[in-house]
Nucleic acid binder design. Sequence first.
DNA 1: GCAACTTTGTTCCTGCGTTCACAAGCGGCT
DNA 2: AGCCGCTTGTGAACGCAGGAACAAAGTTGC
Lengths: 225, 225
Amino acid sequence: MIQPRPRTIPEATVARLAVYLRVLTALADGGRSTVSSGELAAAAGVNPAGLRKDLSHLGPCGVRGVGYEVRTLSDRISRVLGVGRSRACVLVGIGNLGSALADYGGFGSRGFEFVGLFDASPARIGQRIGGHTVRSVEELEDVVAATQASIGVITTPAEVAQSVCDRLAAAGVKSILNFAPVTLAVPAGVDVRKVDLSVELQVLAFLGQQRLGRAGQLEPVEEPA
Amino acid sequence: MIQPRPRTIPEATVARLAVYLRVLTALADGGRSTVSSGELAAAAGVNPAGLRKDLSHLGPCGVRGVGYEVRTLSDRISRVLGVGRSRACVLVGIGNLGSALADYGGFGSRGFEFVGLFDASPARIGQRIGGHTVRSVEELEDVVAATQASIGVITTPAEVAQSVCDRLAAAGVKSILNFAPVTLAVPAGVDVRKVDLSVELQVLAFLGQQRLGRAGQLEPVEEPA
DNA sequence: GCAACTTTGTTCCTGCGTTCACAAGCGGCT
DNA sequence: AGCCGCTTGTGAACGCAGGAACAAAGTTGC
């Protein structure tokens, strides 16, 4: 028997499922037992129809006329996303940002566990952050091999990010989250996801100034009819 | 004389323009004077045709048969994005992540200047980070009004993010970058951009396990029949 | 001066994501 | 038991981003 449902869930949907899961957890803590798509969508900041379509990728999991049972839906999403499955992560580059991530509690509750913090600076090595000890980046390959880490996070300066990325990929890491402001080249079979904080600010600023122009506060730069 | 070009540049294009700008800056530092779309696209990790389409939103700025002049293109993108224009930003929530952002040098070179760091904890108030002193969140409205800050960054715990957001919006901040894991509600005319680190990891992990499933290495965790 | 090569700018097209709208199904009320 | 209202799940249309192919334009060599 084959599954009639296509196994591919759009990436945008996956991102929203994670958001829904967080909202559902908050609702469960609040004692709610059921919730409608409209209410859930409002809390997540999306369109109700889009939410239902996202959830349809999991198969029918609601009751018509009533809504979704919070517990059931929460479990279903957790299972699909693989929450609870422990995932070993390594983090390279223990600067300000790296320290913040290592110390952030939001990962552990989702099954992400840092099994190695690495830095090249002798001043950093040996420090304890978030319950782990910073190790020399020389040990990177050994730790990845020993722990079978599948996720690597790069928070190094841009200059060394590519070489760190190469070493992670060579050591067997299949998924890389990159905070360094460079575009990484990786071999096939390795996923890279980039988070660029200054680009986010830049886009935000551009939208702001574009909105000012549209608002006609100062000379309306509209094309006249 | 009106500009015949439509003023709306797609958001995705704006984000890529910021990336191109970074690559161009690196090229200029390396002494390059011209660059082709193919080379620039490779360095930015995008399709050459897409890059040319992005650049076409700025009007013709290349020379056929030669390529783009690095200096000219760099200036053009900078002007469109508003780089160089100084933008006052306030940062609320000086935890690990907030400290990292306040101390990150990548913002100042793009014209983003933090004019206020705020926290509610007395233990944090008075600390100096990145050349600024952490102030009480009580002073938030006064500082925003005095500095005409247009951008606010929220790195507080989730529980207080909405109230901070409300205060920022009421004080006149028009663009908000939110790192707290909640969906913020804002009045019309205010832009919010959300960066959710744990969602990024979640998506990465899901793509990884999905890739494993497709590879047929082991049977994917099917719902039993 | 002319031809050939290189590279841009544009156009078409395909696919995806989002939104709207409606049929199907379930609980509650009479 | 039967009807009504509410909510889900799905099908269709719309708009948008991404990719490939092509024409225009400029340079280089002869």
